[in-house]
Amino acid sequence: MWSAAVDWLTFDVLRLAPQTRLGQAVNFFLYDSVKVLFLLTVVIFVVAIIRSFFPPEKARRLLARGNEYAGNVLAALLGIVTPFCSCSAVPLFIGFVEAGVPLGVTFSFLISSPMVNEVALVMLWGLFGWRIAAIYIASGVGVAIVAGIVLGRLRLEHLVEDYVWQIRMGEAQVENPSWPERLAYARGYVKDIVGKVWPYVLAGIGVGAFVHGYFPQGLLEAVAGKGSWLAVPVAVAIGVPLYSNAAGTIPIVKALIEKGMAMGTALAFMMAVTALSLPEAIILRKVLKPKLLAIYFGIGAATIMGIGYLFNWLI
């Protein structure tokens, strides 16, 4: 449906020839941006409604009872549905630890929550199809579970800033919102998120369209294809400093895959972008001593690389 409308717009209205590079690039840009912006609005609205049923206070209560292993799995799953913003990472961390949630379980949550986020899902679904989106969710949860278990086993409680253990949290009344409140929250959330990411979506798709139309096919086969072992760690190293901007990077990644980047390498790159970022490190430094911060990022990055190699081998 989109395809016919966009073809008409590019080739009939704008009078660009389908076989030219410019025509290809413009067609690609219009098709993807219309589709993705539409999906973003619809999916974020639905996700916001679901999230209104899972405040972090609920996750905290559920996880405080749990043990390790089962707790890691539950934490990784709750991370998908619980709303998360990196500005809440510190109170969330303290709230979990204070309630007796094991450190490794807390880390599972902290990894899964930003990584499996609605913007990344929409971008993947819209640009790659639901299969890749599902693979991304499953491997995101997998990374969160494995990294959380490893971090928990290392017994690093002494590397959490000492003041964290002294904080006593007050009991807050968390009221159940009514349906009109949920809908109002979802509308506000859509406005907030779509209003923030749309320039990145368009910029990302624009760069992607340029790559699509102007770069030769198979350009990246040699450097970032399946056979290139170094590509996975390099992709993760580039992805970490990029601030969790799934909106801008995923369209570019799509174009890079077309030019020969391997799927596993691309997945690892996207996960590094969303899960690990420099601003988040600065925020988490308030509760983690530098050594634990380094271990957290190291194990996170290593697990993500594992996913990259796994999918380069599988797909």
Partner: peptide
């Protein structure tokens, strides 16, 4: 101040 914030039982800021 984080300790003061947590006293209110808040996990999501602002």
């Amino acid at each position: 101040d984080m300790a003061e914030i947590m006293k209110h039982g808040v996990m999501r800021t602002p």
